[in-house]
Design a binder for these strands. Structure first.
Lengths: 206, 206
DNA sequence: GACAGGAACGAACGATCGTTCTATTCTGCC
DNA sequence: GGCAGAATAGAACGATCGTTCGTTCCTGTC
């Protein structure tokens, strides 16, 4: 099952190669950011001509936006969807956490989370890419806070717990982990991240 | 007092313009990353010719490394040096935290912490820039852990507290804050970050 | 099996990239 | 005030950037 096949309904030939291009683009963005998505490099990587590849998107910006979409789709597929199988409440929050830490590896994104890359890349550069990344991040933040809120409504977390505050700290730990992977041995980063998460949960548990 | 004057001993003309170039480079790196440091753009921004600017560094890589050095110097000057005036222990850790959150703005780095940018940019791209950023981050991590350890030795934090774990969570909150600034209103991000820090301290206080 | 439309190619464009030369201007010292 | 060397400018290089254009190839339909 290759990358193209995992994408939705690749009915026509064009959609199939488009999916292949985007898979390569997300991989590249994971390693070097969305600004490094050059038509030439991507054409070489996918074995097609610059103009042939270009025709699928019409502009570099459209290519970047499409790659961002694809990255978000993969994230949802790899992190949120599986977590929905866990029961509402702390179990699901923990499933989200575990999925979040490991999804870049599971999706074979050697360079780490591409959305993390995009966030830093565009956080202070106005334009469509910035708008896109902000929208996606906000949405993810809301979903995460909702999952936390369920654990509060559940009674697993103390009433009065601020879901958005917990979501903020959740995200912080994930970001700290991504960063620490670079500096420490991977298992040390893992240990730190899990200890932080446990402390977060413990200090709000009923 | 302009940017050049803040740099060490700008005795000769050359060193002075070099300092000006690096100030502009750090600013640019803060906004768009170190990979976006192009000779042409930087020449235009400083009002000199490409070749004239180029002569100061000899290669783009040397320019990037010099800009990274300058960013680290500014960070030390803006965050660590002032914190040393606070008494050892929790007070100093808190001073570090406050300084860390606000230093990009105090240094007029509109694009946020340039070292944060470099970390994500080079975390999975081998080369001298990656080596440089790893070395600096490790050093910062050690210094931070030392400051935490003082609060343990002090008795302000529980004996048995893991300084590196606290340092990891400290860094995570800072990263979460930098990210949240993008998505939320600034004062909300501030509130979340401070609440997280307070919870971190409280749960390890003696 | 002809035909139409989509998909991909190859060549070329102007712009910009990093870099190299040579020439000019400036600065500091006797 | 003249001289040496540093500092800067200007022009050009090959490479690559995003993009355009015209052509060829493939695929599915009658």
């Amino acid at each position: 099952m290759n990358a193209a096949a995992t994408s939705l309904r690749a009915s026509t030939k064009g959609e199939e190669t488009r999916a292949q291009i985007l898979a390569a683009a997300v991989q590249q963005a994971s390693e070097s950011g969305f600004e490094s998505l050059t038509i030439g490099t991507l054409a070489e990587k996918t074995g097609m001509s610059k103009s042939g590849l270009f025709a699928h998107f019409g502009s570099k910006l459209e290519l970047q936006l499409a790659a961002m979409d694809e990255a978000a789709r993969q994230f949802t597929e790899q992190v949120f969807m599986p977590a929905l199988k866990a029961p509402r409440g702390l179990k699901r929050v923990r499933a989200l956490f575990e999925g979040w830490l490991s999804w870049p590896k599971r999706a074979s994104l050697a360079g780490g989370c591409p959305i993390d890359a995009a966030s830093r890349e565009y956080d202070h550069r106005p334009g469509p890419m910035r708008d896109a990344v902000i929208e996606r991040q906000r949405q993810v933040g809301r979903e995460l806070a909702k999952a936390v809120q369920m654990a509060i409504d559940n009674g697993e977390l103390k009433p009065g717990t601020h879901a958005t505050q917990v979501a903020f700290e959740f995200m912080s730990i994930v970001l700290g982990f991504y960063r620490a992977e670079l500096l420490l041995e991977p298992d040390v980063a893992n240990k730190h991240a899990r200890a932080a998460f446990d402390r977060l949960v413990e200090s709000h548990r009923s």
